[in-house]
């Protein structure tokens, strides 16, 4: 898919009803998306939306959702924003890494890197 070929873009924006921005608060590339366990989706969701709901039963960062969907990030974000609006997923707002990392996580990361 390239910018020179408008076909897929038209189709992709069709997927989002022409929207390029997700509803509600913006979210980060590494924000964690989690399907709400008790969520009951209406039957009229498109396959991409259902794929996200299945995928995010395991908490999954936004960038990974986009890569697995093989969709551009901002299209993915519109889908995620919709699902959040419907109460079907939660999207955690990540804190800055330097604040979010406590000593245990720091040691885990160092150990994990050295063990590769």
């Amino acid at each position: 898919m390239t910018g020179d070929d408008p076909g897929p873009l038209v189709r992709l924006f069709g997927l989002t009803g022409g929207r390029a921005r997700p509803p509600g608060e913006d979210f980060n590339l590494v924000a964690i998306v989690t399907t709400v366990p008790t969520a009951h989706a209406q039957g009229d969701l498109s396959p991409e939306y259902l794929t996200v709901l299945a995928m995010c039963r395991r908490p999954t960062p936004v960038a990974d959702v986009a890569a697995q969907l093989r969709l551009p990030l901002n299209i993915t974000r519109v889908i995620l924003g919709d699902l959040r609006y419907e109460g079907l997923v939660t999207i955690d707002r990540p804190r800055p890494a330097t604040q979010a990392i406590d000593e245990r996580i720091y040691r885990e990361v160092l150990h994990g890197l050295r063990s590769l």
Binding site: L29, V30, I32, T34, T35, V36, P37, T38, A39, H40, A41, L50, L53, A54, R57, R58, P59, P61, L88, T90, D92, P94, A97, A100, I101, I105, V109
Partner: peptide, 21 residues
């Protein structure tokens, strides 16, 4: 449908975290 399964959404006690470099 699969997405409505009752599988826990978080793993373990600590919330999932992705660190960006």
């Amino acid at each position: 449908m699969g997405y409505a399964a009752s599988e826990p959404a978080t793993t373990g006690t600590t919330p999932a975290m992705a660190i960006k470099i």
